[in-house]
Amino acid sequence: MEAKPYLQEICFQRDIVPSFHSYPFNIPAISSLSTLKFHADVTFIVGENGTGKSTLIEAIALSLGFGIEGGTKNVQFQTHNNGSQLFKYLKTVKSFKKPSDYYFLRAESFYNVATYMEDLDYLVEYGNKSLHSQSHGESFMAALSLKLKGKGLYIFDEPEAALSPSRQLEALAIINKLVSQKSQFIIATHSPILLAYPNATIYQLDESGINKVKYENTEHYMVTKYFLNNHHEMMKVILGDK
């Protein structure tokens, strides 16, 4: 029997939600949520700003026992009380076998995790080098290439935030290597580069709810392709040139 996906699906316990008129339950993608099944290798969650993708990925991570700032499950601290309560209403359906490695990479709070690790003087698994002595992108790559060991369940929230296009390509190669080492990824992203990972499941969040889409039908792909092919004309329109 195949161990993956380690996280098979989440079920939204709608019957115990106190109200669908308050955040985050009033977000269309959340209010329409029932169950969400995950690919054994890579699942992407995409959507425009405000559609709830980071809210959802945070809730998935918290329902698995991660701290809100990210890191391993042992990293449990909170610098701001700004998380939603969605995780309390999610039921997780897991594999018979647990992963041996876990990590929640959250772009907006990775600086805080880096500070926490330095305060503990525990950087051996990040290459024994200060994460703050590196650029934001370099510290992200250190986490990806050194900290993640394989046979893992990895939750990422906008990992491309600190990565150049070439580094995103490097990140894809690392993700693929870890997938070959029996890892599972669930990633919220805006990156059309990361979204190109072959055979991944892509869920798009919008005003109609949550829908499974093909890569070529994501707004990220279509807008980027059109812009690159028509950038002169688009810049004239955007800048109001005649």
Rank of each mutant, 00 (worst) to 15 (best):
L144D: 04
D101K: 10
L64N: 09
P99H: 03
I30W: 02
F77Y: 12
L131I: 01
F87D: 09
L33P: 11
S32P: 07
F110Y: 13
L64H: 05
E108G: 04
I68N: 09
L120M: 14
F96P: 08
N49Y: 00
G67R: 05
E48C: 03
L64W: 03
A59T: 03
G70V: 06
A143E: 05
S32Q: 15
P28N: 00
L120N: 12
T115G: 09
Y116K: 10
Y126T: 09
Y126W: 09
I68C: 13
G137A: 03
T115A: 12
F66P: 12
L86W: 02
S95L: 05
K147G: 08
V113F: 12
E138A: 13
V46I: 15
T79G: 05
Y102D: 06
L36E: 11
I68V: 15
K147T: 13
A143K: 08
I45K: 07
I30M: 06
T55M: 04
H39F: 07
S31L: 01
F44Y: 08
G83Q: 14
F77C: 10
G152T: 12
A107W: 00
K53C: 02
P18E: 02
L36G: 12
F104N: 04
E58G: 09
H39C: 14
G65L: 05
K147S: 13
S34C: 11
Q76P: 06
T55L: 03
H136Y: 07
K97H: 10
S84V: 07
A29T: 04
F77T: 08
S139K: 06
V75Q: 13
H136C: 01
V75T: 15
A61G: 11
L153Q: 06
K37Y: 14
K73M: 15
K129S: 06
K151D: 15
G127C: 02
L90K: 09
N128V: 01
T72N: 14
H21T: 14
H21Y: 12
N82H: 05
F96T: 13
S63L: 04
N74V: 07
D41G: 08
D119Y: 12
D119P: 04
V17T: 07
M117L: 15
G50P: 02
G152D: 08
H132V: 00
F66Q: 11
H132S: 03
L62K: 13
S84R: 04
F77R: 07
Y116R: 09
L105D: 00
A142C: 07
N112I: 02
K73C: 10
I68L: 09
G52C: 09
T43N: 11
